[in-house]
Amino acid sequence: MTSNTNTPSDDSTPTSGDGIDVAHLSALARLALNAEATSEVASDLQSIVTLIDAMRTVDTEGVEPLSHPFDGTARLRADEVTEHPDPEHFQRNAPATSDQYYLVPRVVE
């Protein structure tokens, strides 16, 4: 893999390392932060970004990225049905269910 060309988004993206758009990031990460938390996080993120920016000076010309500690290859599974889940067993942990469904507030599509 050479470079990532994620589709640019339509709404405002953070524009540079020194202006981290915490509101945008917390929206993407689905974290409701109040104003106070947002400004605290902004300053923490700023120091973290300063910390990680230190690596940008390392020369990586011609170096292949390493995704796993050891370059390996996917191991495949035989196509067999091995799991026979019991919804009741798994739904003991669920905050809201009915007739084996998980329930969430109504979604408008």
Binding site: D99, Y101, P105, R106
Partner: peptide, 9 residues
């Protein structure tokens, strides 16, 4: 299926 709620399967 439910009023005010979406059911997930």
């Amino acid at each position: 299926l439910y009023s005010g709620q979406t059911a997930i399967d």
